[in-house]
């Protein structure tokens, strides 16, 4: 099976879906001639032309709002928000409009659109090119929110998102773009939204995470394996819909749950996971649920020591695993 970069897997999904379905179009800032500031859409403008790969004015609410209208009219827009940090001007269009269109029209209208947004830190992006904003959107019924961690899932889930009948927020961790390679099957495949995946089996500690957290957890599990701690890791892949069964099963597997995410801890996605596990598997737990998450400061500073201090890493995840294993 070919091994590919995360960014190339995302581009392949876009390319193949645009080949497969003439209703699919891309719109966003710099997505056309420039091929995106990260180069995700490189080559698509040349292949599919300016009518289907649209360089829009710099205005996020219009990017999403126009996508809502175009999708209701029968197209399948994939809107790119250049950095997740810049999605906030479009929140009204996402939450008041896209999320509620089907419900408010009693199933008469719907808007099958995808909003792609590179998120996460560790690339010297400072406060406004580093944020994780997924928890703002997972609160909203009507939206789907996914954050694949591997090239395989990025491609398969982006195809699934494009074919989905509802609005999907597709968060791509920008640090993964060129730092992670993985096997990507030849040809067409999809990874269904709403299915978590066990990425490592173990008996002592369960880690539930997504995005960059999966890679920290895998590296940390290797570290503590040498000490005899066997770690079980669940990659959520999709936050809404959430694979609740897989979460509860993973918690029961070891009875010791460590939730890891880069986003802030307070009211972060981990709070929902902890609540779900308590509701459904409290008496199967052998230790209090632990959450390892971003610090309660507004966002990530620019200077290297503060950026390092802000971010989780494999060492910090390994330390949390050890503490929980000892409990």
């Amino acid at each position: 099976m070919p091994v590919k970069l995360y960014i190339d897997a995302v581009r392949e999904a876009l390319w193949e879906e645009m080949e497969r379905d003439s209703r699919v179009l891309i719109l966003g800032e710099d997505v056309g001639v420039r091929g995106g500031v990260f180069r995700v859409t490189a080559g698509l403008f040349e292949r599919f032309g300016e009518a289907r790969v649209i360089d829009t004015p710099l205005a996020e609410s219009a990017i999403v709002g126009v996508a809502v209208g175009a999708s209701a009219a029968g197209l399948i827009p994939v809107a790119e928000i250049q950095f997740a940090d810049f999605i906030l001007p479009a929140v009204n269009q996402i939450i008041s409009e896209a999320a509620k269109l089907r419900y408010r029209s009693n199933n008469d209208w719907h808007c099958p659109l995808v909003v792609r947004a590179p998120y996460g830190g560790g690339v010297h992006g400072a406060l406004y090119h580093s944020q994780c904003l997924e928890a703002l959107f997972t609160h909203v019924p009507g939206l789907k929110v996914v954050a694949p961690a591997t090239p395989h899932d990025a491609k398969g889930m982006l195809k699934a998102a494009i074919r989905d009948p509802d609005p999907v927020l597709f968060f791509e961790h920008k640090k993964l773009y060129r730092s992670v390679r993985g096997e990507v099957p030849e040809g067409d495949y999809t990874v269904p939204l709403g299915q978590a995946q066990t990425v490592r089996e173990g008996e002592d500690v369960t880690v539930i995470t997504y995005g960059m957290g999966v890679h920290w957890a895998l590296a940390a599990a290797d570290q503590v394996a040498a000490e005899g701690i066997r770690v079980h890791i669940l990659d959520l892949r999709s936050l809404r819909p959430l694979d609740e069964q897989a979460v509860v099963a993973a918690a029961r597997r070891t009875g010791k749950v460590l939730i890891v995410h880069e986003d802030h801890k307070f009211c972060g996605f981990g709070a929902e996971l902890a609540a779900l596990i308590c509701e459904q598997a409290l008496f199967d737990l052998d230790a209090p649920i632990q959450r390892l998450a971003g610090p309660e400061v507004p966002a990530m500073p620019f200077c290297p020591p503060l950026e390092r201090a802000y971010l989780l890493n494999a060492d910090r995840v390994a330390e949390a695993m050890r503490r929980l294993a000892r409990f």
Partner: peptide
Amino acid sequence: IPHAVGFALA
């Protein structure tokens, strides 16, 4: 208003 522009784009 942006929705109308989306319909027009389509």
